[in-house]
């Protein structure tokens, strides 16, 4: 019996017009993501990988087509609904970490909990738990500048985990790291997938793509199953 889809994209297109040239960042993409999948999205630079990830994560909206999550269409959702979706269901991990430089590791991880309206004790306990899970129990009160690149990415993974998301979207998470540190981060993310979190990773790295249960490759906005 086929598993019901977690996210269903139907004929999703996104265009950018620069001058009088139209660029198809995503061209008629249809795809179905099932719970617990580990998907690697590969493709050359500028092919539309981030655009696809942002649409799945509710950060961006398609020009046409639908993005169905639990029966609702993200393409038609309002700001409030999308905000709740991003806060409760999605954890983002960025290439540039995007940590708050003035906050400690703990405070950075507490941010999504603060946004969710969690109480003081609860947010601290949960943030400590998440930092512990990524192996940074002894770096809670360090600021981002006092941490190495790999440690910073761990903090951002802990932050993505804070609200117990069903999906983690990582856009080139190892792009700013050396290969040894990159492998550590990949092991960490793959471990989270084994615990049941759906994982979508954008990467150039074929070694990374190999660990995934499913590979999607994009060329000029068109998605193909499997390695290209």
């Amino acid at each position: 019996m086929p598993q019901p889809a977690l996210i269903e994209l139907k004929s999703v297109s996104k265009d950018y017009t620069i001058g009088d040239e139209t660029l198809h960042a995503l061209a008629n993409v249809s795809l179905s993501i099932k719970p617990g999948e580990f998907i690697a999205i590969t493709g050359p630079s500028g092919s539309g990988k981030s655009t696809l990830a942002n649409i799945i994560g509710g950060l961006d909206k398609p020009d046409s087509g639908s993005v169905e999550v639990e029966g609702a269409d993200l393409a038609k959702a309002g700001d409030r609904q999308l905000s709740v979706y991003r806060n409760k269901h999605i954890g983002f991990v960025f290439q540039a970490f995007n940590l708050q430089p003035t906050y400690t590791a703990l405070e950075n991880v507490m941010l999504p909990l603060v946004l969710a309206g969690a109480g003081g004790k609860e947010r601290k306990a949960r943030a400590q738990e998440c930092l512990n899970d990524v192996g940074l129990a002894d770096r809670m009160s360090h600021r981002p500048t006092q941490l190495s690149g790999g440690q910073r990415q761990r903090v951002s993974i802990a932050r993505a985990l804070a609200n117990k998301p069903s999906i983690i979207i990582a856009d080139e998470p190892t792009g700013n790291l050396d290969s040894a540190k990159g492998r550590e981060i990949m092991t960490l993310l793959a471990g989270l997938n084994k615990q049941g979190i759906t994982l979508i990773i954008i990467t150039h790295d074929m070694e990374v793509a190999k660990q995934a249960s499913r590979v999607l490759s994009i060329h000029d906005g068109a998605v193909k199953e499997g390695r290209s």
């Binding site: 950060l59 905000s83 709740v84 991003r86 806060n87 995007n98 941010l111 999504p112 969710a116």
Partner: peptide, 15 residues
């Protein structure tokens, strides 16, 4: 950048 991050983490326009 910070505003973008807050939004990505689920802070709505109203907030």
């Amino acid at each position: 950048k910070e505003i973008g991050l807050m939004k990505a983490m689920g802070m709505g326009g109203g907030r």
